[in-house]
Design a protein around this nucleic acid. Structure first.
Length: 321
DNA sequence: ATGACGCGCCAACAGGACAA
DNA sequence: TTGTCCTGTTGGCGCGTCAT
């Protein structure tokens, strides 16, 4: 294992120490349970099957599910190899260190900012977007990637990327268009960090009237906004066939982040992060913490020094509050 | 010009949560 | 127990880019 930087060596050592600590606590089986495994997907019922089955036009190591590994690993010790092999998915944010998560999110935002959609922004909208990007979209992305999923779990790269693109449009004030109808949603109403959860819900209700999902989100039914009243099922007009990806999901992520900031203000950063890391009862409907969350707690406390995510968000919030 | 590959978009699907 | 709702993931397709 040559040419590894000091940082990489230190990271490998941390992973190795964690593995030993887990083993010492008899958690090896639990580690195996939560370690990445290829999903066995059940055959789809309705997805159309290619009538003329031909080999895929594409072939690549990535598409074949291959994992890129450093060639130099051949000379690594067993423990080092095991540590690196355990680190299988570079996009599994739950396995990233604080610095890696930050860097991963920075790259992702940069990627979204490179998209062709940005060329449609006016100078003013672009300035607004860049300002938000340097001010709060970073922490928003890190929080959403790490805790924005079901039961405050991580979400996929694809998911966060889709969300980011729509959020950036909303933040710039350019708003969101659809080829299913005329007009622009939320044009000239740029979202800022000061938006409240209630205001986000009003926007979601407006979104449900502008481009409704087939079934309205339950919490919005009956809500009266300037465009009308949200009904359980829209009676006529265009439908958001993307099942909420156009507006509802991105707005929900913003709301989640608003609620997170509120919680930090009302309690404390430490209490919030402790709860998020699973030490306290989860707020979602009183369910027992998942095995995954329990493991994360152990993993965080087994390390020397403060848990990584606490370190990360401490840094973020010191800047914000 | 052609083929390989990466990526975005969209809709179907999976599966957990909850209500009846 | 069963059906419905909701949210996140996956797979198919088409287009753009790059190397040959």
């Amino acid at each position: 294992m040559k040419d590894l930087s000091q940082y990489e060596l230190q990271r490998l050592e941390t992973i190795r120490q964690n593995a030993l600590a887990m083993q010492a606590m008899g958690l090896q089986e639990a580690i195996e349970d939560v370690r990445w495994k290829p999903k066995i997907s059940s055959p789809s019922k309705q997805r159309k099957v290619r009538l003329d089955p031909v080999a895929s036009r594409r072939s690549s190591r990535r598409l074949a599910g291959d994992v890129a590994l450093d060639d130099d690993l051949g000379s690594a010790s067993e423990a080092e190899t095991a540590a690196v092999t355990a680190y299988r998915d570079p996009n599994d944010v739950s396995q990233l260190t604080a610095a890696e998560l930050k860097s991963w999110c920075n790259r992702l935002r940069e990627e979204v900012l490179q998209g062709p959609w940005r060329r449609t922004l006016t100078h003013e909208q672009d300035e607004r977007l860049l300002h938000a990007n340097s001010a709060w979209l970073g922490p928003f992305t890190e929080f959403t990637a790490r805790f924005g999923g079901k039961s405050e779990g991580p979400i996929s790269r694809q998911n966060i990327k889709s969300v980011l693109k729509q959020v950036m449009r909303l933040v710039s004030g350019a708003g969101i268009t659809s080829d299913k109808r005329d007009g622009v949603f939320a044009e000239g109403q740029p979202i800022t960090l000061g938006i409240t959860a209630e205001e986000v819900d009003t926007l979601r209700a407006e979104a449900q009237l502008w481009m409704p999902q087939e079934r309205s989100p339950a919490d919005l039914i009956g809500r009266s906004v300037k465009g009308g009243i949200v009904e359980k099922r829209p009676s006529k007009g265009p439908i958001d066939t993307s099942n909420g990806w156009l507006l509802n999901h991105p707005l929900m992520k913003i709301r989640l982040y608003c609620e997170h900031l509120d919680e930090v203000r009302e309690t404390s950063l430490e209490a919030t992060m402790t709860r998020l890391m699973g030490a306290a009862a989860p707020k979602n409907k009183g369910n027992a913490p998942s095995k995954l969350i329990q493991i994360r707690v152990v993993s965080a406390t087994a390390q020397r020094g403060p848990p990584l995510v606490t370190l990360l968000f401490s840094e973020v919030f010191r800047e914000q509050f």
